[in-house]
Structure formats: C-alpha cells, structure tokens
Design a protein around this nucleic acid. Structure first.
Lengths: 341, 341
DNA sequence: TGTTAGCACTCTCGGATTGAGAGTGCTAAC
DNA sequence: GTTAGCACTCTCAATCCGAGAGTGCTAACA
C-alpha cells in the first residue's frame, strides 16, 4: 500500500472525522477550516484528488464533497485515530451496575448489551459464554402434581435448565428424591455421550429421565452458542443511513436472524482482543453496509463468548473500540471470578 | 346509535372489507362491482354520503373514495362480520407444534407468540401466566466452586429460578445438601411473607440463603407479570401504514417499552373472551393508530395471562379474532393440564 | 319517492422543468 | 509547490402542469 505524506494523512483523518460526524460528503472549503493546515482550498483539492486516486476516498457525484472508502476507514483505524478510553466516571458507573445485578449469566449478558448499546449509540450484540463441553453436576426431581414432575438440571459451569415431565403413573415426592439421589451419584461429572451410554443400563423410569437430561444437555450445547443478546436496535435506526425504509427493513430482517448473526460473530472474533470489521471486508453481502467492533471475552481456551457493536460503516471507531474493550475486559473479570482461577 | 338499512350495512361492510384489503380509499364505482347490489354508482354515492353523515365513514380529501372511521370498524366488528374459524388443517399444525415442544412455560409463550404472529401477519403479544401468589416448593444448593454455590428455587406452580451465591467461606457439597434438606422441610408451602418472618430465627448462613430465596420470589412476583413476549415485529412493519419512517419509529419505540405494553394489555383484557380495542378507543395517545385483539387465558381466578395481536386499525378483524380465540383456548388447555384438576 | 345519467368541480399524484448552491478540476500566474 | 479564478457539473428543492379519480349536484326518469 502506497505511503501517505503527513499532510495527506491529516486530510484523510479530517475527512473521516467530519464525515462521521455530519454524514455529509466533505468539501475542500470545509476541510481548510477543520484540518488546521494553513493552505488554500485548491491545495486541499489536489490532495483530495490524490487520495481518491489511491482509493481512500470517493465521490458520490461530480460536484459533491469527498467521503471515505472502506480502505480509507481501514487506514484511519490502523494508523490515524487516537486511542479512546472510557472516562473513569462512566467506567465506575458501569462497574457499579454490574455489581448491583444478581450473579446470573443471563442478567450479565442483558446488562452488557444494554451498556454497550447506550454508550456506543449503536446496536450491541453479546453471545452467552459457551463452555467448552458441558458436564453433569446435579439433578433434582420435584413433584408438581399427580401427573407432572419437574426436572431441574445443573451443569458444572452453573448452567441451570428445567423441564416438566409427564408421568405415566403417579410417583410420590419421596420416590422422586430417591431417584434423584441415585442418579446424582451415578452421573456426576459425566458428559453427554457417557450419559447416553449409561441410559441403557437403568430402570425404565430412570432411563426416561436420563433421556430428558441428555436432550437438555444437547440443547445447552447448541443453544448457548446460538443465543445472541441484542440491544439498541432503535439507536442504530436513528442514524441517517436508515432514512430509507428498505435499509431499515433489511437491517431489522438481519437482526431477527439469530443464526446468521451468531455465525458472523463467531467467524469474525476468533481471538482475544478487539477486532474491527468494516463493511464489505466481511465478504458478506448482507453486512456490506455495516461495520462491527467485536471482542472475545472469557477465559482463553475455556468458557467464553463475544461482545460487540454493530453500526453503520460511518461509525466513531475510536470511541466504539474503547467501549467494547472496556466491557469485554469487565466480562473477563466476571468470568474469572465465576469459574476460574 | 342510528339504525342502518340493510343496504347501508352491506355498503359499509364492503367498504371495510375493500379498504382492509387494499389500504386505499374506496370509490363508488368499485363498490358497485364488489358489493353485489344491483344499483348504480350514483345510488351508492348517496348511501356513502349518508354513512359519512352518520359518522361511519370519512374522506381523506374531496375527490378520494371513502374509508371507515373507528365507529365504522366498531359497527363492522359488532354486527356485520362473519365469524372466522381457523381451518382444521392449521389448527392441527399448531397443536402439533405445541406438542413437539418441551413442557416449559417459556417455550410455550414463545411458540404462542410465533404462531399468532405468523397466522395473523401482525405483531403478537403474549404475557407469561401469573400465579395468584407464589409459594415455595423446593430448593437445592449445589457447589460450583470453592467460593460459589448455586441456589435453585422451585415454586409450587413449577417456576424455576436460580442464582449464584458468593460464599463467605468454603462449604462442602455434603453440608449444602444438609442445609437444603433442612430448609425444604421448613419452607414447603410458605409464601413470601412467611419466609421473611422465618428468616429471623435461623443460623447465619441459612438466613442468608432465605434472604436470597425471598428476593427471588419477589422478583418472580414482579417479573412474571412484566414479561411480554413479542413476535412478528417485521410483519406489522410491512403494512403500508408504516411506509412513513416516523410511524415505523413510533411503533418500534412503543414495542420496546415493555412496561407500557404490559400496562395496556392488562388494562384491556380484564375478562375471559376475546376483546377488540380499535384505535383511539383505548384512550391512549400512543395507541391511537393501532388496534388490538386480546384474550385472557388460563384458569379463571388463578394462573393466567394474556394473548393478543397488535396491528394497524385497518386489520382483518374476523380472521384475527378467530386466531386469537383459538390460541387462547389452546393455552387454556395447556394450563389446565399443567396446574389444574 | 327512490334511482339514475350527466357533468362540472375538486383534489392528488407523478413527471417535467428550472434555478440556486455546492463543489470540483483545470489553467495560468505567483 | 501553491494559489486565485473560473467554467463546468450535478443535486436538490420548489414549482408547475395535466391526467385521473371521485365526488356532489341537478335534472330527468320509473
């Protein structure tokens, strides 16, 4: 990639900043005022033409100002922008919110999404932490009525899932407790496959219960990776790029497709550290109008998930990166305290 | 309210049906073709003028066709429309879906919302069943790590809730089981207030646990009434009334306010049976562009919630009412089988 | 008295036109 | 290398028709 002179960098940065702020193509006159260089608009025009030649800027039409291309944004993110750190006051407020909430993964995810959305004024995406493999910890059968019992399943990472069971014949609470205890001693620490094998060697009722346990564990294996928490959908829609109704619908349609989202998220946040995906860089048709700032959180190689912000390509990257980085590190801490050390 | 002649009723019904279908004001020529009366367009025009005089129809402007007023829709719903019953094939499909899903209230609600949204092509709103008062059934403490235990709480109606506990000092799994058993024998069948009283007379750790139990029960009391399941937001947005961006935003904004929704729902579905609220009849500014078809489901006087459809005032009322009625009765059955008898 | 044909009148909507404004790109001078 | 000057391009908003749809009135008719 061709090198830019210092002045060109300065002009490019100004175009990006100005365009991000106003959503309008930037003209040479405006730049003279904003970029602080003591040259005339004609000189700026020459530089603009050069930057366009190199592919950092475009024109929507002949007599409009310039706006950054994806390459322009990329250069800005890599080399020009200055790091942004969330002001300590806001950091403290956010940390406070996390401590106020109960110790519950679901709540944390919601809160993380809410915090990200509000701070970034864009749509936040958060996936629940996914344990490498789920292992049985405990189950409890509770009688609800004559014909119905409740199965509560706890996994080693603290995930809880419950399901009602229809009973073929009435079973007393005492008997249910006995069955629970017996199964617990057999199952503790086993994974899905081991439980499936064990199910073959038990009484009818017990093996029925085990089948349900197995199906729940399978659901958790699948689901915890598929659950995407979203927030701030309205925030992104307020951006001027969504003034056109079809844009708006396209975005909403995409956000409703959880599987698509999950796929994209895991594809583009493979490593710890903040990742920026700008528009068409994702190689996905549906995403070409949006940028994402993503980060993987959790214990490396173990339990972890993804937090991120989705916004228009015209996004305040520095700010967003700072926010995502902070929330991600905060979740790191929470996960470490929860599962780790 | 003035009585309408049979011909006027026929004309009104035709206007409603035609307008609902096309979203365009209906002219006299079109009506001659559609309403099946063997009269000229001039006669129809006279009837239209009469209906407008009485307040059942309006004009957007001088040279446009007629469209129903709220009063017109109301008359249509009360006296003119013919009952619609969901075709048996669809009924069977829906019932099948409910039986495929696990016995889980959360899943039922999601499914009910999905089914309603797809069948009605509008936004579905469903509130989780709210038990009259929640009573303790069972708890279980499970050790997660040295410093953390998991509390799983089961209520008599089958609600399950869990929370992590930070332990002041390590406690073994055996000890946790002992504590669980002891508390279970004390607490079974108690309500929130009774548990609060009991908490005073126990050891430090046990009363800590009880405080958490009490706070969870309180959350459930609050929350199960506030949780509103929504589906089909895209479906309603596809309607031509939301071609204008502000309409769209206003609707989305309203749907994001769960508290508002919940308030409205419980206000307008006080009784069993399907209720229709047309536009401004709700006396609420925010709702004046929308109609709702609502129904309370569940065991009368006991556990129950609300299902409904939200759509533009220009809605296929007969069809929607049929669908809501069916889903509501289906949930009635499920609730009866779950809690009842 | 109810119904109908005829017709003038009204209002909207889409397309064409136009002029102001913004911004460029080139040229020639500094 | 930088700058002033200027012609040129393109958009956007305002405006202006004209076609089309539909009404409401009148007068004639059964």
């Amino acid at each position: 990639m061709a090198d830019l002179t210092e002045r060109q960098e300065r002009v490019l940065a100004s175009v990006v900043r100005e365009y991000v702020e106003t959503a309008q193509p930037v003209g040479s006159e405006t730049l003279v005022r904003k970029c602080g260089l003591r040259v005339s608009s004609a000189t700026i025009r020459n530089e603009l033409a050069a930057l366009e030649e190199m592919g950092f800027l475009t024109h929507p039409h002949t007599s409009a100002g310039r706006m950054p291309t994806e390459k322009g944004y990329r250069y800005f993110v890599e080399s020009l922008m200055q790091e942004f750190e969330l002001p300590p006051v806001e950091q403290r407020m956010i940390r406070h919110q996390f401590h106020q909430v109960t110790l519950d993964v679901d709540q944390w995810m919601r809160l993380a999404a809410a915090v990200l959305a509000r701070a970034s004024r864009n749509t936040a995406l958060v996936t629940a932490p996914l344990a490498a493999q789920c292992r049985f910890k405990h189950l409890q059968l509770v009688s609800i009525s004559e014909q119905v019992a409740l199965l509560v399943l706890v996994l080693q990472d603290g995930t809880v899932k419950q399901q009602m069971l229809a009973l073929a014949q009435p079973i007393s609470q005492e008997e249910l407790v006995r069955v629970s205890n017996r199964l617990n001693t057999h199952l503790v620490g086993l994974n899905l496959d081991q439980i499936r094998v064990l199910a073959l060697s038990l009484s009818v009722f017990e093996s029925d219960v085990l089948h349900v346990v197995a199906s729940l564990m399978q659901q958790i294996d699948m689901r915890s990776s598929h659950e995407v928490y979203r927030d701030g959908i309205m925030d992104i829609l307020r951006q001027p790029e969504f003034a056109a109704i079809e844009r708006m619908q396209a975005l909403l349609e995409m956000l409703e497709q959880r599987t698509l989202l999950e796929e994209i998220l895991s594809e583009f946040a493979p490593e710890h550290g903040v990742q920026v995906v700008i528009g068409g860089e994702s190689q996905r048709e549906e995403m070409s109008d949006y940028s994402m700032v993503l980060s993987r959180y959790g214990l490396p190689g173990e339990t972890g998930g993804i937090v991120g912000v989705l916004g228009p390509v015209r996004m305040q990257y520095a700010r967003t990166i700072g926010i995502v980085r902070y929330v991600s590190s905060l979740l790191d801490d929470l996960m470490a305290r929860m599962y780790g050390r």
